[in-house]
Design a protein around this nucleic acid. Structure first.
Lengths: 168, 168
DNA sequence: TATTTTTTTCAAAATATTTTGAAAATTCAA
DNA sequence: TTGAATTTTCAAAATATTTTGAAAAAAATA
């Protein structure tokens, strides 16, 4: 397997997997292209490399910046904007985890809180309902706190603390 | 807010959030309906409650069983199959985490391994490429192991071990 | 300021996913 | 067995999401 072939396979695989986890294919492909690129790239280069439209490239570059996975780079003497990916994979993993926590756990906590606030446990049925809502609330707050604690720590601490926990 | 209203809001919210995390709306709605139901329900009851087709109900009930979130219950004297949700929210959370680990992390580990196996580091460029592949491999194996260890433990151990880790 | 380059927006088109519903397969009782 | 009840399948329809590309906006230059 030659390098070009391997890189294409990497980009394709990353794009396919992404759809399994709620991220769109193009965003993942642009991300992996930049991850493998030795230099920063501009919109035109990404367009021609992945054969996609300018609008699509622009929209996904902005999303990737929102996710904190790529940075804009302004090169002196260049009008065009260049983009470069965060290459530290631990940071990438942390950013992804952080964003997914925000998107997936946050709204769940809020929704359960609204239900708790909006209903009084004045019948047995309502109590039963609130029991479930409370349980979900507890579990999601727990998951949120756990992830938050992990993400605050730096990566070395992260690794070593897990080794400590799971080796005892 | 009355009970019926709160339950509908719960089902609706669960369905909407699910789409954010790669689970389809109907599957989430059926799950929440069964989670809140005092008794097990059959396909016809689910159809009329959620106003969806028989095929859709059938397909999603099977998916929910695959996820280990609901169980089939055969009632004596009844021809129809009844379904009941796992009510222990810790178990539910564990099942969801387990399934997502399998779907999201597993394929990533396999893909990186294929790339590692398929390419020789005989040029500087290839070495650089393999560095990234290796990093992703390491992080995803780490995440996989961490989750696996957590999921093997029972929930009390889970809670207390996290408290230990994060309080020191 | 006017002109050119680059980025952004967004309605329409293309693509992907989900849902339907009727037919086929399966299960169960007599 | 047969026949009725129930579940499953899957092609077509409906819906949702993504992508395009041209026009508008913004930014840089002269």
């Amino acid at each position: 397997m030659e390098l070009k072939e391997a890189k294409d396979k990497f980009i394709h695989t990353w794009g396919t997997l992404a759809t399994q986890w709620g991220i769109n294919r193009t965003m993942a492909q642009i991300h992996s292209l930049l991850l493998l690129a030795p230099k920063s790239m501009n919109a035109d280069e990404i367009m021609s490399e992945l054969q996609i439209s300018r609008g699509n490239v622009n929209m996904n570059l902005r999303d990737l910046m929102d996710w904190g996975l790529i940075y804009k780079q302004l090169l002196p003497g260049e009008r065009k904007e260049y983009f470069i990916a965060e290459k530290d994979i631990w940071k990438v993993a942390k950013q992804i985890a952080k964003e997914r926590r925000r998107r997936e756990i946050g709204p769940l906590i809020d929704a359960m809180q609204d239900l708790k606030d909006g209903i009084k446990p004045d019948t047995a049925e309502k109590e039963e309902f609130l029991k479930i809502v409370n349980d979900i609330s507890t579990v999601s707050v727990f998951a949120d706190n756990t992830l938050t604690s992990l993400l605050k720590a730096d990566e070395n601490w992260l690794v070593s603390s897990f080794i400590k926990v799971f080796n005892r």
